[in-house]
Nucleic acid binder design. Structure first.
Lengths: 364, 364
DNA sequence: TGTTCGAATCTATGCGCTTAGACTCATGCC
DNA sequence: GGCATGAGTCTAAGCGCATAGATTCGAACA
């Protein structure tokens, strides 16, 4: 079978130079109509599809954006359907209601929509650890890159930011010329605290979540200051510093249950953590919200499906994804010269797990 | 700000030729260790990231796969959060339980996983109609392309198949050298019919779905032959030939309700259609499954969340997505010389809407 | 000491396209 | 008739990298 058709083939068949072929596709007005038709017909005959690598090389830009995320599940065993966020094993497993779509997926959705709206191709990649080969490869392919930093080191991001504009989903400040996109974790936690204190008259509130995740630390700080605002002394440390994906998860919380040392309310650093907490409490026979109130953070879908449904703070994820793509496109491949940042507001979503809402209602 | 570093810059700084720089990255064993270290150090200093366009051009392949899908929602108005599959309007709307994740999303998930597992970059794009500019652009960027054909014409697919291997999610036969990947729609419908007839002793069964969608037509044929196998004469046409996204949806069904002409069971061509039917029936005060049994096809998440939960036939979507990527990678950019196809088996999933299952259970 | 050989590196070319600038030639003007 | 003009087309260079094949050079060996 013949090799792929190129501009040269089309040019020869249409009896013009390759420049004219290129113009016929990129600047049609510059080419006489009859010539253009001849060229397009030749291209059609030959099955000619312009090679985007060559175009990108010649133009110095690709019209593509990248989204790099972090996927714990990729580490899983390697069978045909391994590594999935599915509930079970085998060749046909249903998706896990808990894990699809996640925080990341909703942002990705917004990013996708905006890419297509702006006529950008979207490149997706994902890694499992701090290694940089995948994200570097991606950086070599696109005009702008949005990154869920996960376990990537600051040095890695800094390195990449020398080549192209990088947007990071994180509000953590830094002096690296990245665009930091995040939400007001602080205000979000305060509104949750206000709700628990003012509506439910709860004052015995503990925090669950690891402080070495920057976002979680901000949420912890919001929790502390929220309590302070009501004159409540806050514990200096979380009740439990678990994070998802770690061994021995929620060990401290489990201990507290065993010791009968549970607070009246548990505020979790994320929805996923909160769902794990709900599971644990149910397992131990602790009733939510009767015995303990539980809150999350993020507003993922699974929080609407759990029993009880989860009171949380919702991030405008789709809007954030869209914004990310907009910023990168508008920047046209130019790196930022100084750190940028943008914080999105969050919204309190009151459901059953704090004692509001009508138990049994699925959704909303 | 300086322009991007290239091999030339690295070579100069490390005191070697550009060939050696390239080898240091691509065939490290070929380069003396001390030289390699010097080169990598220079690259680090300069912020050098290899340009994938240049590499792809030089090598004649990109190590990337494309996935093209069809997205009705892209046509929606253009506000910041418009065009989303979200339930409502405004800057922060929650995802619609009905629309996320869809059939397409689950296949995409499998495709993603396999791409990353095989060290392929994934390019995603999506269009709204029969226009080919987007899918052609994608075809110019990748070594292999998986396509949800949607409104694309056969000619378009044929054209693209001259340039690179194309896999189509559809079992419709054709003489174009594409890889057709689908499921056994026929057997799936027959197992549903068998269930309705043998377990629920229902014989008055009608089909809802448009026949101009190839998959739906196959399902209709499975329905017809299933009835025949039980000695039941099948209606020559569906009760209603609606498809999602069309105006005046389910008009015939609505009419049947008004006329009191509903059959004992309604088999829908897809889950999404079945969910719409459930809505309509509930709206009209028709009880499912007491008055009418309803079934779907696909096995999307939303069918586990509806009330009643939806009896359906499930496609192994993640496995299909994985398989698609495998086939394309294994083919190494070579077009197929003749049409290929592969059909995946489906699995009957019995839930509440046919009268099985315990009402009120969410999930499974 | 001369020869062979292989490791390490370099030279040179081409991948397919875009685009600045040169060229051609019909047209309209003085 | 000479000349400027501009539409249409072409020539030629370059984008950043991979890699075949040439070259260099030290080690091994007779």
């Amino acid at each position: 079978m013949a090799r792929r058709a190129t501009v040269y083939d089309v040019a020869e068949r249409a009896g013009v130079s390759i420049a004219t072929v290129s113009y016929a596709f990129r600047q049609p007005d510059r080419v006489r109509e009859s010539t253009r038709e001849r060229i397009l017909a030749a291209a059609q005959d030959l099955g000619y599809v312009p090679n985007a690598n060559a175009r990108g090389l010649a133009r110095g830009k690709t019209n593509a954006l990248g989204l790099y995320s972090f996927d714990l599940m990729l580490d899983a065993p390697q069978g045909l359907s391994a590594g999935s966020r599915a509930a079970g094993a085998g060749d046909d497993v249903e998706v896990d209601l808990r894990a699809f779509p996640l925080y990341v997926d909703e942002i990705q959705r917004g990013f996708e929509l905006e890419c297509w709206h702006r006529d950008q191709t979207l490149l997706l990649s994902s890694g499992t650890g701090p290694e940089t080969s995948r994200v570097t490869d991606l950086a070599g392919r696109v005009d702008g890159l949005a990154v869920f930093p996960g376990p990537l080191s600051d040095e890695s991001l800094q390195f990449l930011s020398r080549r192209l504009p990088i947007l990071v989903f994180s509000r953590e400040p830094s002096d690296v010329p990245l665009f930091h996109l995040g939400v007001d974790n602080y205000a979000g936690m305060r509104s949750l605290v206000d709700h628990l204190v003012l509506v439910h008259h709860v004052r015995d509130i503990m925090f669950v979540g690891a402080l070495d995740v920057p976002e979680y630390r901000q949420r912890f700080e919001g929790y502390v200051s929220g309590l302070a605002a009501h004159g409540i002394p806050a514990p200096g440390r979380p009740l439990d510093e678990s994070d998802l994906g770690r061994a021995d998860n929620l060990a401290s919380l489990r201990e507290a249950v065993a010791d009968g040392a549970l607070p009246r309310a548990v505020m979790c650093a994320s929805d996923q953590l909160a769902l794990a907490v709900l599971d644990l409490l149910e397992d131990k026979g602790v009733r939510v919200p009767q015995d303990v109130l539980v809150t999350g953070f993020d507003g993922i879908l699974a929080g609407r499906l759990s029993a009880p449904t989860l009171t949380t703070v919702r991030q405008p994820m789709e809007a954030m994804g869209r914004f990310a793509a907009q910023v990168l496109v508008d920047n046209g491949g130019q790196r930022w010269t100084s750190p940028q940042s943008r914080s999105f507001p969050v919204r309190l979503v009151v459901r059953d797990s704090c004692g509001c809402g009508r138990a049994g209602t699925v959704g909303h």
